[in-house]
Design a protein around this nucleic acid. Structure first.
Lengths: 338, 338
DNA sequence: TTGAAAGCGCTAACAA
DNA sequence: TTGTTAGCGCTTTCAA
């Protein structure tokens, strides 16, 4: 590999002149520039990113941590973020945190080691451990969840879709369709996201004057298989619900699998509404009603907030709240009730 | 930010002792190590990746270039690659090349600038331009396509699924179901992948003794919308095909949309087989027969080949060919023929 | 306009 | 066992 010293030697110029010629910054005669550029070309010179980084303290990379790389929900966020970042000449460094706080902490540490200039952290659960690490980290981190426990001194940005409201809308929609026995398949309520979603469901049921009997809320893991298993529990009992809210599309599809296997018609026997509104929703039969959680926009805004910190030196915290949106399709509209 | 010099000063030791204590390499007394570690902890010391990189010439990152970040096909590859890379403590630096050779060249340049220690390049089209750049690049690049024009001197690895064979299997399957009028929706045949797929189709038709009339092969763009438009062309004519092979799942879903809109039953009126076997195939109704292109394994092997170069200093080229696999579902099996 | 030199933070060969 | 020193390759200030 050639470097500026080799070029300097071969051209008889000094390394600093070579550097100026290459960078275009600082004085440099037309002739010198010409000579340097030709020699650089000839030697296949390319600058070394690490050396530049060491000086400039910029890596031109952003760490993006997602809890589940197998879930299409996050693809959309990654896409949105990538769209924005590439306009700044930035790359995404992808990290799969697998719902593990330890993994998140490790990545925050990597950020501190300057693997990147900032981070977009998609977590299901902000707790004292990762929040402490986020506060300690000298580089900007943008969160993509609602962050309840904000302290006055906190200085990180976040962008979120109100998922409590999202699942509220889903539940309300089913209530509006006349359903009385509505069940919920949700993720772990030990995590923030699962907890919020369970609360949204309860709130809607309460506001609709409906009880939430024991056994009508099942915890699962956001996978199709998990959704299937949970649906089996709900549909196998004697007091079968007439409608099910699923906390994401994959579980809803698993739920539909279970219905199909049991000969239960959707939406005739059981109506289904889910959350995320991924591309799957328009592929299933019946098509799946779902809450659009604006994932692409979420990624886009997270990236924008981050680049404002990195590039524009914004210092004051900002947060953005996006509105979830109910998209009604076939799975939740009982034909005879129309 | 603190560095080893600050720690050295505060502990009264030399920077090199500090470095040794922190890295665990080289001699260092238990006492010195203790002192250093405590001070490091106290000062929230973290090493600087750029400095380490500059010395070690390792970035612990791999560039992964995919042509279409919106296509779930590639996410599977990314997942497979990530699984392997994280075992080595490596990260994926994601690049969206958008089917653009210029973008690929730019990324190869970034690799040369040591944005990463190697690259996994998923391209639809290996031509003289990007191949020249790949040959010139001093860092390892693994290709994930069949690469026909291999020269004796070439020294890069590749792993691929034989897609000519894949689409051959799909077509053969339809012929075996008794179809005579089979159409193809394929990507651009100006790109290598599209060309290979079109050839596989033609070969199967020829071997089956069937003609490929003008207009029965439509070029599209691997999107659902594109597939819809192409299907409209095929299904709108008077000599409608009884079966359609689609070169990927998204186009197949678009094709099914078109059928549904026209009241054409699948597989009764028109049978459909596609390629990729993404998760969509089991969500659609009817479920979609598809050729499994082993994308996760592809990513896994690409990453393995790359890490053998980077970590194990393998110098001899290797290539791996995976077998495509037909997965028969409902969309291609005409009930009355069973 | 050009060059010398210091420094970014870490590593490692070598000397003490 | 510890310290000195010379880089890694680039940027940038300051002097010439």
């Amino acid at each position: 590999m050639s470097n500026i010293y080799v070029i300097a030697e071969k051209t008889g110029l000094s390394p600093s002149t070579v550097a100026r010629a290459l960078s275009g910054r600082g004085y440099c005669s037309q002739k010198a520039r010409q000579t340097v550029l030709e020699m650089a070309e000839k030697l296949h010179y390319t600058p070394t990113h690490a050396a530049r980084s060491l000086k400039s303290k910029r890596t031109e990379k952003v760490l993006m941590c997602v809890p589940d790389i197998y879930n299409p929900f996050y693809f959309k966020m990654i896409q949105g973020a990538n769209d924005v970042l590439e306009q700044y000449g930035y790359f995404i460094l992808l990290c799969h945190t697998k719902h593990s706080v330890a993994q998140e902490l490790k990545m925050i540490r990597s950020l501190t080691e300057r693997y990147g200039d900032g981070m977009i952290l998609v977590s299901f659960d902000f707790n004292e451990k990762n929040l402490a690490a986020i506060r300690d980290c000298p580089l900007p981190i943008v969160l993509t969840n609602k962050y309840g426990g904000e302290k006055v001194m906190d200085n990180f940005d976040y962008v979120y879709v109100d998922d409590t409201k999202g699942i509220y809308l889903a539940t309300q929609h089913l209530i509006g369709q006349g359903h009385k026995k509505i069940a919920l398949i949700v993720g772990s309520t030990a995590e923030q996201t699962g907890k919020e979603r369970a609360e949204g469901f309860s709130a809607a049921m309460k506001d609709g004057g409906l009880p939430v009997p024991a056994g009508s809320v099942v915890q699962s893991d956001y996978t199709r298989k998990g959704g299937y298993g949970s649906a089996e529990k709900l549909l196998g009992g004697k007091d079968r619900p007439t409608a099910i809210v699923c906390a994401n599309d994959l579980m809803a599809i698993g739920c539909m699998d279970s219905c199909r296997a049991r000969g239960i018609r959707i939406p005739g026997d059981v109506a289904v509404v889910s959350m995320d509104n991924t591309d799957f929703c328009t592929c299933t039969s019946p098509t799946l009603s779902s809450i659009d959680m604006q994932q692409e926009e979420l990624g886009r805004i997270a990236a924008t907030l981050l680049m404002e910190r990195i590039d524009k030196k914004r210092r004051l915290k900002e947060s953005v709240c996006l509105e979830p949106e109910l998209v009604v399709r076939q799975s939740s509209v009982t034909p005879q009730r129309r």
